[in-house]
Nucleic acid binder design. Structure first.
Lengths: 340, 340
DNA sequence: TTGAAAGCGCTAACAC
DNA sequence: GTGTTAGCGCTTTCAA
């Protein structure tokens, strides 16, 4: 029998609703005898408390809001999965909201989550933080209500906690390594000016400039099309080459773009890695699918997620927690870069 | 100012809470004048109704539960994304639960959703339906409470609605086409015995048997490892070949497995498609990443999702809706199969 | 250790 | 067209 109330149970068990409530919430002030009596009835009727009523009283549903631009993005999807699991292990449920990439729709999604009385919201992906300070106001506003966790992005504001991978250093070192192996005309291929997007670009840029290799601004190529349209990406590289741009390597801000670089090389008849090198980012499934397999930067997503949840649980538990945590990435060398 | 109640608003606007409630819910029985007055106050104070209180009264939160085994699966993630968007367009929110692949954890996740008083639950992916009838009881039980929607799976039970792609026919025709182009030793590579998994296998099997080509049971290879471990998959094929199994084509039950087949061909030094053909399933991002690009079956995920939502909205609106809807897939021919 | 009762914020039936 | 009021099911003081 379902849809029973606490009154039904109290009646069947011959106690008051307060006692039932105490048993339900594990209060210590109940005698073992009555506790057992109540529990028996509860199990017998498979009673489960009404979450709304509980929420109304407590103003919380033990639910965390998950915000992500696009759950079909390989990287974000993986993050969602990890976070979801970890939350459940900690007794929390999650509500997912796919907000899309526009600021306005992000604001809307954020509000929706807040309306739902989530205990915190986790922004998954660096695209939630913008360059202009004013564009991040919606995060600050939300943080006035509940703690806001940022995965792969950072913002210095009250009640906002950032967990990031050190994209700058990862990219810097990957670029340097490629340079040291003798490759000089390295094109940077990216599609996001988000927090992490800028950090990555900076890592590449600094490494190149330190070696006086950033000869042309065209070596930095921004792609604006669909995240899944490998052909469009590859065409952009092809076009750049036809315009006379010289490059014999591509460092990409994600593995999708790197796949396109591989495709470009194939169309241009270049041998990998002899004539042409490619480095991706995220170390996703794509990296082991391609031929040759893709050298890619692993930014330790699982570690980030774990730490995010640890931090969140600390915050919800009323503890002082670090406002920003930084992890290091790691270059996974495979077949698209020259062997040392 | 946040955390205001309907009482605060009614006071400021000089009306009763009932009138505020009416304005909130768009009831027609309010004069334009008072309506505007109330709306002004609401906007001024940025008041938003408490979702719990509303839920308590209505016993609904306009929320749909999404059940999916693993949101990091490329295919499932895409489905989630589509469904999420469509639901929001229809004024519904969604709660995602990643259940994992074990029956027990699926039952738990299903119960959690029901406890949350969702208005319906959508099971995303064929793995929610099992061969044994008793293993599907949890679906039947859930359907006693709220309508259950099945994406890519089917179950004949009250209040359960199935939206499926005709996997049997898709696979049958793809196999036939490969046979007609002169390929005979076709290996079937799969990793799921779910509803749709069985239908796909059957399509292959019938096509092969009709042509007397299913010479060895070993031509049907079941893979049990991780969905993401391309190397393990490829190794299984390599091992089969070394054991003397003869095959010059692989039809896979998803694109991941097909990627592994491509990798196998490369390791075995086979030319594609001259010596070796591959057909995948899902027409995912992977299909355009590989080299050569993968011939794959598109099962029209977006169409399925759209129809699922249309059906769900019908059901929630109290209309009679079809219990089972079937769509056709389409073979997208690319570089891994012989040109006609 | 237990019970009675006052909310929590909203909706909807009913009265005016 | 508007107001009054009785729930919705639970948690939590406060008394006993």
């Amino acid at each position: 029998m379902t849809n029973m109330t606490i009154y039904d149970i109290s009646e069947k068990a011959g106690v008051s609703i307060a006692t039932v409530s105490r048993v339900l919430n594990g209060s210590s002030n109940v005698s073992e005898k009555t506790k057992k009596k109540v529990l028996d009835v509860i199990h017998q009727y498979e009673y489960t408390p009404n979450a709304f009523a509980r929420g109304l009283g407590l103003n919380s549903m033990n639910t965390i809001g998950l915000l992500c631009a696009d759950s079909s993005d390989l990287y974000l999807a993986k993050a969602i999965y990890n976070i979801e699991q970890l939350l459940r292990q900690n007794g929390y449920d999650s509500i997912l909201c796919c907000s899309g990439y526009e600021l306005e729709s992000k604001k809307k999604a954020m509000n929706l989550l807040i309306t739902k009385k989530v205990d915190s919201v986790i922004c998954i992906g660096s695209n939630y933080i913008y360059e202009k300070e004013e564009d991040n106001q919606y995060i600050v506003d939300a943080a006035a209500q509940v703690p806001v966790m940022l995965l792969n992005a950072a913002l210095d504001a009250p009640n906002v906690y950032s967990i990031v991978s050190d994209d700058f250093t990862s990219m810097y070192e990957a670029t340097l390594q490629l340079i040291h192996s003798g490759v000089e005309d390295i094109l940077y291929f990216y599609n996001s000016t988000s927090y992490s997007g800028k950090r990555k670009l900076a890592g590449y840029r600094v490494a190149m400039e330190e070696n006086n290799l950033l000869k042309s601004g065209n070596l930095i190529q921004f792609y604006t099309g669909s995240h899944e349209d490998i052909h469009a990406m590859a065409n952009q590289l092809l076009k750049a080459q036809k315009k006379g741009l010289k490059f014999n390597a591509v460092i990409a801000s994600d593995d999708n773009l790197a796949m396109a670089a591989l495709k470009y090389a194939q169309l241009a008849g270049l041998r990998i890695p002899e004539d042409f090198s490619v480095i991706g980012y995220n170390n996703s499934l794509l990296a082991t699918c391609s031929n040759p397999e893709l050298t890619s930067i692993d930014n330790k997503l699982e570690t980030l997620c774990q730490h995010l949840i640890v931090t969140l649980m600390g915050v919800l538990g009323g503890n002082e927690m670090p406002k920003k945590t930084i992890f290091s990435g790691e270059l996974i060398t495979r077949g698209t870069t020259p062997k040392k």
